[in-house]
Design a protein around this nucleic acid. Structure first.
Lengths: 138, 138
DNA sequence: ATATAGTCTACCTTTTATGTAGGATTTGTG
DNA sequence: CACAAATCCTACATAAAAGGTAGACTATAT
């Protein structure tokens, strides 16, 4: 399961994508609209900003906005940023690989094979779907 | 990611499946073979037993053994038992569904759609692959 | 009897998740 | 310039989950 942090991030990003033409959006507006604790959301948006996904503007008329077009932001990137590996096992992760300590040889591990397939199936979707695909408002 | 608990369970089950003809297997043997803390493994095997996946025999010559043939035990079942939902979001889980608190209507939520697809892609593999597919020993 | 091996209950430690509090800083506007 | 509106940033709080340990109890084969 995705953490609450990542879930909230997705909802916030959807809101930003749906209002991409309205300039900076207030944290408080997103929090209210999506029913998220404002202070927790603050941390999340900051993290997205530090990763270069969002930009922000301080002071009156300020808020957060997307740094790129929604179609440029793959869902996998958000998950990896906030939740880490998408794979079910560390020994099968592309971006956060760790050697398996329980099997003697990963090359002949049946678990390794199956979990690689699950990873590939998930990534095929998460790498190709973007924020734009999450927006339903016309 | 799967929890350590589930990862250990898979490795233990693989060992049991590979030695299915040798009668009950000692916890200590599995722990040693797979490099798992014996006491932690004890808890895990007990949980698998209470779920009807394993049987056990006490006393000398005792140990744990599979209650069904390896090909009868789907990987999804193990994950659900020890880790809970396979889906990435609660609102998309088949077995542990919870309503989404951040969107007004799941039916028109783009996130819901994408995550359902990821779930289906994962389940297609995890429901059809069994313990037997994890065994590599001849 | 006795040693073996699982059963059960309770506890412990560390990390992660999920926030909360509040002051510092930047910026637009009158 | 003063002020209010926002984000920025650091630190803390709290609870749950993960991961593991300890030890007494019970059943069984020999």
């Amino acid at each position: 399961m995705l953490s609450k942090k990542t879930q909230y991030a997705f909802h916030a990003l959807i809101h930003l994508a749906e209002n991409v033409d309205k300039g900076p959006i207030l944290i408080s507006e997103i929090a209210k609209e999506k029913n998220i604790s404002i202070k927790f959301l603050e941390n999340i948006l900051l993290e997205l900003k530090n990763a270069g996904i969002l930009g922000s503007k301080k002071g009156k008329g300020g808020g957060y906005y997307l740094m790129r077009a929604p179609k440029e932001i793959a869902l996998a990137r958000i998950i990896r940023l906030l939740d880490g590996p998408i794979a079910l096992l560390p020994c099968v992760s592309l971006n956060y690989y760790e050697r398996c300590e329980n099997c003697k040889d990963e090359a002949v591990c049946g678990l390794h094979d199956v979990m690689s397939r699950v990873r590939d199936a998930s990534l095929k979707i998460l790498e190709n779907k973007t924020l734009k695909d999450l927006v339903t408002k016309s």
